[in-house]
Amino acid sequence: MHERMIIAGFGGQGVIMAGKLLCIAAMNENKYVSHIPSYGAEMRGGTANCSVVISDKEIGSPTVPKPTIAVVMNTPSLTKFEPMVKPGGLLIYNSSLIDQKPKRTDITVVDVKANDISEAEGSTRAANMAAIGKVLALKPEIASLESVIKALDVAISARNRKHNDINIKVLKAAFAQK
């Protein structure tokens, strides 16, 4: 298993956190992980993103110019990252906020109504968890749902840990969705 992921959205959607959560869960399953946020010049223009590598083997370059998985949470991120996905790769897009359809036919395209799922479980702020839930459902080899739920206690700062009940509900709801 060697997955190279981009998770992208606008600032505040929790994309950096989502990447860290996956890394902690996979690390606890003894996989090699790396996480590097976009910073500075490349952050201008509406997207924040992180590059995540999860692998059975040691990780060389931490950057992800050709993702095997791209998770895009808003329209500018779709525009930027859809063309970069490796042929045969996976694109998950947040159809709650993105009203255009991805055009690529050489990759698997899956939508997740991330904000709607989050709101249905009682929070406007857990769309990132819905995206993660969808990733885990489609790529179970990255980490188990249980590992990710456990990792929440480490990944989420103490002051936000009270929201973990909702985070777990959103994760499970998106994970279970067909």
Binding site: K20, C23, Y32, V33, S34, H35, I36, P37, P62
Partner: peptide, 9 residues
Amino acid sequence: GYLGQISEA
């Protein structure tokens, strides 16, 4: 910069 920004185990 990469080593400064990367998170790993």
